[in-house]
């Protein structure tokens, strides 16, 4: 498995995109960003990446954080938690009942978001990844199926 970090040019492009979408001013300096296919990006540490080149049988490196799409960038739950307080715009606060709905993959109603494609959801200091803003005034969480709470588990 060959794993390469993003080039300086790609990093500048990512930084610009995250600033445009979420107001994130800069990328963490102690992490490396890796291309993971399907326009997904992961983060890891320099020493992990270096070590991965010295041993056999490597099948996975890094934490999935961002998916780039044609009209924006979607952060995973872990990606949004990683950037955390540096997210300055397109951030919505959820109530406890909305958190439950969000984690089932169900939409949240927000009619005041204007012309944006993605927002990030937050409950207290827990960041819950990106949601896609629909024209119908709903935000559709981008929670992968394996992370969703089964609806019948909610009270």
């Amino acid at each position: 498995m060959r794993i390469e970090p993003l080039s300086q040019r790609e990093l500048r492009s990512l930084e610009g995109e995250l600033k445009r979408c979420y107001g994130i001013e800069s990328l963490p300096k102690d992490l490396v960003f890796l291309a993971a296919g399907e326009r997904k990006l992961k983060v890891s540490r320099v020493e992990v990446l270096e070590f991965s080149r010295t041993i056999r049988g490597v099948v996975n490196v890094g934490l999935y954080v961002v998916k780039m799409t044609r009209d924006g960038s979607s952060l995973s739950l872990e990606g949004s938690q990683l950037f955390g307080e540096s997210i300055k715009k397109n951030l919505i606060e959820l109530s406890e009942s909305e958190v439950s709905a969000w984690m089932t993959g169900g939409p949240i109603i927000r009619t005041d978001l204007g012309d944006v494609t993605y927002v990030i959801a937050k409950f207290k200091n827990l960041y819950l990844g990106s949601g896609r803003v629909g024209r119908d005034g709903r935000v559709y969480p981008q929670i992968p199926k394996w992370r969703r709470v089964p609806e019948n588990e909610l009270d």
Binding site: S44, V48, V59, N60, L82
Partner: peptide, 22 residues
């Protein structure tokens, strides 16, 4: 068993890991 391992590392936010299959 590799897939649940990778999923759990992701869910827990572990970023200093690498997974090997040996």
């Amino acid at each position: 068993r590799i897939r649940p391992l990778i999923s759990n590392l992701q869910r827990f936010g572990v970023l200093n890991h690498l997974v090997t299959q040996v």
